[in-house]
Design a protein around this nucleic acid. Structure first.
Lengths: 410, 410
DNA sequence: GTAACTTTATAAAAAAAATTAATAAGTCGG
DNA sequence: CCGACTTATTAATTTTTTTTATAAAGTTAC
């Protein structure tokens, strides 16, 4: 009897919850909507939508948001998410820097992003640092813990989604990452690979919004790739998909830090680019890079090389061109395999603009089947340095609104 | 008023139809099911399921199929698709051979497969040939046209899914393929790329059944690839995804028929393998291939080389090994990008068994990150020569049962 | 500026759909 | 052969959704 009851209630609930979640997701992803809009798109009558919206409004999740347009009749009331109904804390953990943000349901930063100049390469206990800084941020914003939907955390390295274990960091503890972070946060924790978080940001707020098949490249120290396929982030069987930096490209190439020989990263990464610059200048190449670094090869960075190229420095331009060509050959492979509608270039190297995109395009013309190449737009990200943070916010909110079987009361 | 009525009816219908289609799809993909089974999996009460099943049984789509097992209680009645409720005609168009089959809802061939020794390379009007042979097949089987759900057609080449136009065959007419075939078939027509049809077969009946992320390689004259991602066939923006044969691999390679230089197919395809064999033997290599072909280099084929290797011929084994190594390097790229749970090798070359899989595995050990490699099973297809035919059958039936807004009465 | 037409909103009535409950029927194990 | 258990069927009940009617708020054309 009891179990029968429970089952039925859960079925009933699950259907109601499904609709509630669909409404919340729609509001989150598309902003404001009117009742007739929703009636059309969800294939339900106006009174039904009204009933559910009333419930959500009563719970504090949605609010009226002015009037919409009409083609000749009474104007509809627009509804939208109450931005301050819930909040998300987002943590972007890098090798040398950690960023922490507190964001509302309209993806707005509640306070300035906290930046910690420590990271995965530090010797200090960064978990405690993150805990302290987060608590402080929340406290200062005057938001109570029960208003926080969850924490979204991103970090680099190989992360096994089946076990949640990172093979690159926090390996000593041998615990799944979400358990590790659960210990420092009193609310649900969601962990994502940093490059994949960036792709989520592009999908939710960036150039990939509304698109189905998009590749997101992150050109930084290494070469990262995330794939959006059929409108969703593709992770692979264990979450390792997108190891573009380690596909074999050079026949008798250099040894890569991954242990293999001839990986793409050995010819097309930021690290290699900087190494090439240092070697070249040491061998006597004349370049503005020398001035910009006060003749100190240690100071050569991607930023410096890009700056030199922007100043018209031929050597810097040639360096970028060489990297672009290597990348282009790799991207040609992606193009043939994925036939994407768009490829988004991100990461520090993408700031080089035409100095990196032109050699890529040039190489693609050589190495890609024209019919497929013509099908794909190559663009540079328009999201700033907080892209990764925003990606994990979308992760947390979407997870909550789509899966959230237990609908949280305000 | 009228339009309101229509809208409501269509909404009502669409919900009922959705459930009906889900039931039919479940039966098609999983065979027989009992009412309590369905009640559990569809989250609906037993009387509700009973009602819909009665309706479907009345329409002739499903029949009782004996009793199931019980853990101590009344045995459930099993229901399943009525195999002869509807039929599908499937046409596999190759370069030199055309296969036509008539299949029922249980994927059983109603009559022997018709084989026409003409194909896309022929000068004759193969559309008329297909029309005649199909009509004859249907007539001989004594099935009326209205019992045929549709025709599934597969062919090679680049097919643009946005326009339906093939860039490789029937280019003179400039018409979408489905329109071309609609003219010779009096029922709905579904067209699919041959390699992708094969992957559909693996997904529906083969080793990929129930799996999420699988790569299907077709090693024949060329190198074909189809990807199953998140349990669905991935086609790319215009249907060109999977052009694995034309990714750039050789730095200063040979000219490929696609116009580019250094494509994978120039080093790892069946055509290249045969060429290598001919060149080697012409240069004096001693091999059983010479005997098997009566010293006629024209007669060297994949089949012959595989046969020679099976007889222990060292030269043939070395040839296959070389091809396997080239393939392995390409597959390493796939592995890093997709992190699949399984890679299925198909096509004529896969019949070489260990002579081709061992060198592939050997190369993967060299070129793939161990953690990712360990995650993937490399297997050989268990489907026979009718795989492509079966794939298009699944395409037609699934399309009908999932999309089919207009539920066909028997 | 007003009449005619549209679109949106709300409440009560009606219809539809699904579930519950009661009952019956068939099975298994001891 | 009896009791526990699963499945099946029917009617009654509940839940959910839609209709219908009415009102409110705008737009457009004359």
């Amino acid at each position: 009897m009891d179990s029968e009851d429970e089952k039925t209630i859960s079925v009933r609930d699950s259907k109601k919850t499904a609709l509630r979640n669909k409404l919340l997701t729609t509001f989150y992803q598309e902003g404001t909507k009117s009742i007739p809009d929703l009636s059309d798109s969800l294939q339900l009558s106006i009174p039904t939508i009204t009933r559910f919206l009333e419930e959500l409004a009563h719970a504090g999740y949605i609010i009226e948001e002015g009037e919409g347009f009409s083609s000749g009749g009474r104007r509809p009331v627009l509804y939208g998410l109450n931005p301050n109904a819930k909040f998300v804390i987002s943590v972007d953990i890098g090798r040398f820097i950690i960023r922490i943000a507190l964001v509302n349901l309209r993806n707005q930063f509640i306070a300035p992003v906290r930046i910690i100049n420590e990271g995965l390469s530090s010797q200090s206990d960064i978990l405690q640092l993150i805990k302290q800084e987060s608590e402080d941020l929340i406290k200062q914003s005057g938001i109570s813990n029960d208003k926080i939907l969850g924490a979204g955390i991103s970090l680099p390295g190989l992360i096994d989604i089946k076990t949640g274990i990172s093979y690159s960091y926090f390996t000593a503890v041998g615990k799944p990452l979400h358990e590790l972070f659960k210990e420092i946060f009193p609310f649900p924790v969601f962990v994502e690979h940093d490059t994949k978080a960036m792709a989520l940001a592009e999908l939710s707020f960036g150039l990939a919004k509304g698109k189905q098949n998009v590749l997101c490249l992150v050109l930084g120290a290494g070469v990262g790739l995330s794939m959006i396929m059929a409108g969703k982030l593709y992770k692979g069987n264990s979450g390792f998909a997108g190891e573009f930096g380690h596909i074999p490209v050079a026949d008798n190439g250099q040894l890569c830090y991954c242990g293999k020989v001839g990986c793409l990263e050995t010819v097309a990464s930021g690290v290699t680019l900087i190494q090439n610059a240092r070697n070249g200048i040491a061998s006597g190449a004349s370049s503005k890079i020398t001035d910009l670094t006060n003749n100190n090869p240690e100071k050569i960075s991607l930023d410096i090389i890009i700056k030199a190229a922007a100043l018209g420095d031929q050597y810097a331009i040639a360096l970028l061109s060489r990297t672009g060509e290597s990348l282009g050959k790799g991207i040609a492979t992606l193009l043939h395999l994925f036939n994407p509608e768009m490829i988004i270039l991100g990461g520090e190297l993408s700031k080089a603009g035409n100095h990196i995109t032109d050699p890529i395009k040039q190489t693609l013309n050589q190495h890609a089947i024209a019919r497929i190449l013509r099908d794909t737009e190559l663009v540079t990200t328009e999201l700033g340095e907080n892209a990764t943070l925003m990606g994990t916010v979308a992760l947390v909110i979407n997870n909550f609104f789509t899966k959230g079987a237990d609908f949280p009361k305000l």
